[in-house]
């Protein structure tokens, strides 16, 4: 088989739902093996069918447990589910402990569910650089629902909005005063808020603060007011199940709203812009940087800066002049 045929074969197997081929491709994407791009080219036309749901929130808020519960709820409706669960990479050793899966292992043998853990490998936005393409793989496999779980986030990790249709921000009571609720960043990106562990002290206050924040916000910009769902105790099956149904109803409602309004188009455009941006960076900037690093020029340029013989902008213009045909 020629390499090209091999890629077409791989793409076919992925579209038939072959787990081994899909998980190996995701691995090659993570490892930045150049051949992975070729396979992506073949599956890309077959993507765009899944409803992509992002789950984000602080560490220990219950994102994985919620993802597990949602998998169950979607499976009851006969929808297939793919999950990408991201956990942090150590800045010191490069290793990672990927533990989100523990909460979802009851679905391991269900052929309608595919769970893949990813390490951030230095990415700062709460996700891994591989997430965009890994979503394409799950989408091409025919998963109806794709859940992306971010690392435990703080205030600023909002990368998830570029990858999902519906963003769920999971909060827990007792994380700060009302000013936290009106800060920019993660509090702005929710399509749905979940207050988890709402049987704890401070849950009513958090609910009131979120309501006040939403009252202040200019919701007319997209017309969707994020609902707030309080989930009390995962160990009380009846009330938990009821809240879960409410949440999954809101998730479906939000997707419907996106489709009925112009918003789905807007989100797709935002995502496509980001994908082009990243692909350009990978095919233009990275090869240049690699060459400059290998021939020692990068080092020399740094030296020039230290000795104040040049400045970053002049150096960059010089390099751009050398590599690019038309420099504005």
């Amino acid at each position: 088989m020629t390499p090209k045929q091999e890629d077409i074969e791989k793409a076919k197997r992925i579209r038939k739902g072959d787990v081994r081929t899909a998980s190996r491709l995701i691995r090659n994407i993570e490892d930045q093996i150049p051949e992975a791009k070729t396979t992506i080219k073949h599956i890309f036309p077959h993507t765009g069918k899944a409803h992509i749901i992002g789950i984000t929130g602080p560490p220990g808020a219950g994102k994985s447990t919620l993802a597990d519960a949602l998998i169950g709820s979607f499976r009851e409706k006969n929808k297939t589910v793919g999950v990408l669960a991201v956990d942090p990479t150590s800045p010191f050793t490069g290793g990672a402990l990927l533990g989100d899966r523990i909460r979802m292992q009851r679905h391991a043998e269900d052929h309608g569910v595919f769970v893949r853990s990813l390490a951030t490998r230095g990415a700062l936005g709460g996700l891994s650089k591989a997430v965009g393409d890994a979503v394409h793989v799950l989408d091409a496999m025919g998963k109806d629902i794709i859940i992306i779980e971010t690392v435990g986030t703080g205030q600023q990790e909002v990368e998830i909005i570029n990858h999902s249709h519906t963003v769920i921000v999971v909060l827990v009571p007792g994380m700060g005063d009302e000013i936290q609720a009106i800060k920019a960043g993660i509090m702005e990106i929710a399509d749905i808020f979940v207050i988890n562990k709402a049987d704890r002290d401070g849950s009513r206050q958090l609910y009131a603060e979120l309501m006040a924040m939403l009252d202040m916000a200019n919701i007319s910009s997209d017309g969707w007011r994020p609902p707030i769902i309080r989930i009390e105790n995962v160990f009380e099956p009846i009330s938990f199940q009821k809240k879960l149904e409410e949440l999954s109803g809101k998730i479906e409602g939000h997707f419907q709203y996106l489709m009925d309004s112009q918003l789905l188009g807007d989100r797709l455009r935002r995502k496509s812009m980001m994908e082009i941006n990243e692909a350009l960076r990978a095919s233009i900037l990275e090869p240049v940087l690699k060459e400059l690093a290998e021939n020692g020029e990068l080092e020399m340029m740094a030296e020039k800066l230290i000795q104040k013989k040049s400045d970053p902008y002049s150096l960059a213009e010089e390099i751009a002049g050398r590599y690019l045909k038309n420099v504005p």
Binding site: T93, G95, G99
Partner: peptide
């Protein structure tokens, strides 16, 4: 934990 510190990506199933 020790595998993590060795630079591996470790999935723990529970």
């Amino acid at each position: 934990r020790c595998f993590r510190d060795a630079g591996f990506e470790v999935i723990y199933t529970g």
